[in-house]
Amino acid sequence: MTSDPSHEKRAIRAELRERRRTRPAHVVDTANLGFTENLIALAKETGARTISAYLSTSFEPDTRPFLNWALADGRRVLLPIARQDGLLDWAEGDGETETEGLYGLPEPVGGILGPIAINDADLIIIPASAVDARGTRMGWGRGYFDRTLGSMEKCPPVFAVVFDDEILDEVPREVHDAPVDGAVTPTKIIRFSR
């Protein structure tokens, strides 16, 4: 009998969500400085002029300092807006204005560009609950980013943002799971060979 990857994922996500919830504030603050530094280094290294990223929730690594840097540096920032049909629309972020969207997720306020706007990105930064050494990413269970990445004809580098202890030996993989090219942690930028 083989185990069901979706059940395994739910159990791992619950553990990781609890770990994030109970991580001490001073540890998170220090980690967020590292995340920002490494995201900036990655953007500079790739030369990305249009960056697709996301507005982090309260339990995710804080992406806002990086987004503010990108905007101040003259880079275009595309941020997702979740739709009921499981697709993502995109809007250009201004670093200041946001609202609560579907599922209580923070979203940018601005003109909606539609799902194909992601094709303009030179670098895609996405949330994750964990990533393994093969580049298998486990999200939070709604599949928005897997669908988006799976629909792209030509995908730029994709990096997941996770804490160091969320780089696991292996995460359960399902057919629809889109792999990532790398991960950004508070201490390093990891690249996976695919």
Rank of each mutant, 00 (worst) to 15 (best):
D4C: 02
P5M: 02
S6M: 10
H7N: 00
H7F: 01
R10T: 13
A11W: 00
L16S: 03
L16H: 01
R17Y: 03
R17H: 04
R17E: 05
E18T: 08
R19W: 15
R21Q: 15
T22G: 02
T22A: 03
V28N: 04
T30N: 07
A31R: 08
L33D: 12
A41D: 11
L42Q: 09
L42E: 10
A43F: 12
A43N: 11
K44V: 03
K44G: 00
T46D: 12
A48T: 05
A48N: 05
R49V: 15
T50P: 04
T50S: 06
A53N: 00
L55G: 05
L55D: 06
T57E: 09
S58W: 00
E60H: 06
T63H: 02
R64H: 08
P65N: 11
P65Y: 08
L67Q: 13
L67C: 09
A70H: 10
L71A: 07
A72H: 08
D73K: 14
D73N: 14
G74M: 08
R75F: 04
R75N: 09
R76T: 15
V77E: 01
L78E: 06
I81F: 04
A82S: 12
A82H: 03
R83W: 12
R83K: 15
Q84N: 13
Q84F: 13
D85S: 12
G86P: 07
G86C: 10
L88Y: 11
D89K: 09
W90D: 11
A91C: 11
D94L: 09
D94T: 11
E96L: 04
E96G: 02
T97P: 04
E98G: 01
E100I: 12
G101D: 05
L105A: 12
E107H: 02
E107F: 03
E107Y: 02
V109F: 07
V109H: 09
G110I: 10
G111S: 11
I112W: 05
I116T: 14
N119H: 06
D120F: 13
L123E: 08
I125P: 03
I126F: 01
I126W: 00
P127F: 13
A128D: 13
D132H: 00
R134W: 09
G135E: 00
G139H: 10
G141L: 01
G141Q: 02
R142E: 12
F145V: 09
F145S: 07
F145G: 09
R147F: 14
T148F: 09
G150M: 06
S151W: 00
M152C: 11
M152A: 11
P156A: 12
P156I: 14
P157E: 12
F159S: 04
A160K: 06
F163Q: 12
P172T: 06
P172E: 03
E174Q: 13
H176S: 08
D177T: 06
P179I: 00
V180I: 04
D181S: 14
G182Q: 06
V184C: 03
V184R: 00
T185I: 10
K188P: 04
I189V: 14
S193H: 07
R194I: 06
